[in-house]
């Protein structure tokens, strides 16, 4: 791809042919406010917030405008400012003002553009405020869908379509009645939704928000423990508890994607039924025991069962290191090759 240079607000920036103006700006660390754009998805050009003026005459949408060498872009042209300001003011005038209790607070794209544009109470007071009052869809166990916060950017619809090819949701109705909807606006849990949560993580506001989400204190890079695909995950931790899982965008396998089990199926980790001590069966019931007690018993019994009287079944669930030691133990200590695992199931 050949390189081009364009000018944004007087700054010369490099770009590659095929990029959009918005991409080029972002690649150079410039912020052009936008709402419906997402790097994983094709540009939609619907929020109109990323509006710019091209070559001093043409109003264009930077998320869909291909770069050209020598192009001159203004993001602060008065006409651009007016369109952007009205558009954001309109969105805010139709949005609930519950920021402090909102899941997206602090990480909300609408807040960000509103702040950038500079929405004042005085300006907002000129508008007729109107916020929807549609009951929140709480049918999914992992996330809620609050249509009242929805800005209809369509990122969820495009995620479900372009990335997941599931199409559980789509735009329905039209005009101001437009709504992101399943068939006949049934609860999302009754739809084809696979609860992968990919839409939830991309929602720029909190129309789609994880249930009972906790911001992690730190994140640990690891690998999902379910199927053999081996998706990279970021385990979100607070104290000694895993409170969230996100896809690892740097992982070459999943590039951030996760399925329902990978993203939401982590609560077994801190489950109260986890085994916490060794158990030894006494008089037909398993009773808590110390490691010493258990190891002594095992050492004794295993010592008497060396050779082909012994077998070990390792696990496809545990690490290479675990498996290596188990087969080493079976072969080197127990003297048998009776080792297998559940690969075939």
């Amino acid at each position: 791809m050949s390189k081009v240079t364009l000018t944004i607000d007087g700054l010369q920036i490099p770009a590659k042919e095929g990029m959009t103006v918005l991409e080029a700006a972002q690649a150079s660390g410039l912020y052009i406010p936008n709402l419906c754009n997402h790097p994983d998805l094709k540009p939609a050009g619907l929020c109109r917030v990323c509006v710019v003026k091209m070559d001093d005459w043409k109003i264009a949408i930077s998320c869909k405008l291909p770069v050209k060498d020598g192009m001159v872009i203004s993001t602060e042209d008065p006409e651009v400012q007016q369109i952007r300001k009205s558009t954001v003011e309109l969105l805010v005038a139709n949005h609930p003002m519950t920021c402090l209790t909102c899941e997206a607070d602090g990480d909300c794209e609408l807040q960000r553009v509103a702040h950038y544009v500079g929405i004042t109470q005085e300006n907002l007071n000129r508008y007729r405020r109107s916020v929807r009052s549609i009951p929140i869809d709480r049918s999914n166990p992992f996330f809620d869908f609050d249509h009242n916060k929805c800005i209809l950017c369509g990122i969820c619809v495009r995620t479900c379509d372009e990335l997941q090819n599931i199409n559980a949701i789509d735009y329905a109705q039209r005009g101001v009645d437009s709504i992101i909807s399943t068939l006949a606006n049934k609860p999302i849990a009754e739809s084809r939704c696979e609860s992968c949560g990919e839409c939830v993580i991309r929602c720029p506001v909190a129309a789609l928000a994880p249930k009972g989400a906790q911001e992690p204190m730190r994140e640990v890079k690891s690998i999902c423990s379910y199927c053999g695909v081996g998706c990279g995950v970021m385990l979100g931790v607070r104290g000694q508890k895993v409170v969230s899982v996100e896809g690892d965008r740097d992982n070459p396998v999943n590039k951030g994607s996760l399925c329902v089990k990978g993203r939401f199926g982590y609560r077994f980790i801190n489950h109260p039924e986890r085994l916490k001590t060794p158990l030894i069966k006494k008089n037909g019931t398993l009773e808590e025991a110390s490691w010493d007690e258990a190891l002594d018993l095992i050492a004794e019994k295993f010592s008497n069962s060396k050779g082909d009287k012994f077998a070990a079944l390792a696990s496809a669930r545990i690490t290479n290191e675990d498996n290596y030691l188990i087969q080493k133990f079976t072969r080197a200590v127990m003297g048998t090759n009776n080792i297998d695992h559940c690969a075939r199931l």
Partner: peptide, 14 residues
């Protein structure tokens, strides 16, 4: 209004 873009959807309503 088809409702896809903000200025038309919310602008006409306003």
């Amino acid at each position: 209004s088809c409702g896809q873009c903000v200025p038309c959807r919310l602008g006409t309503k306003q």
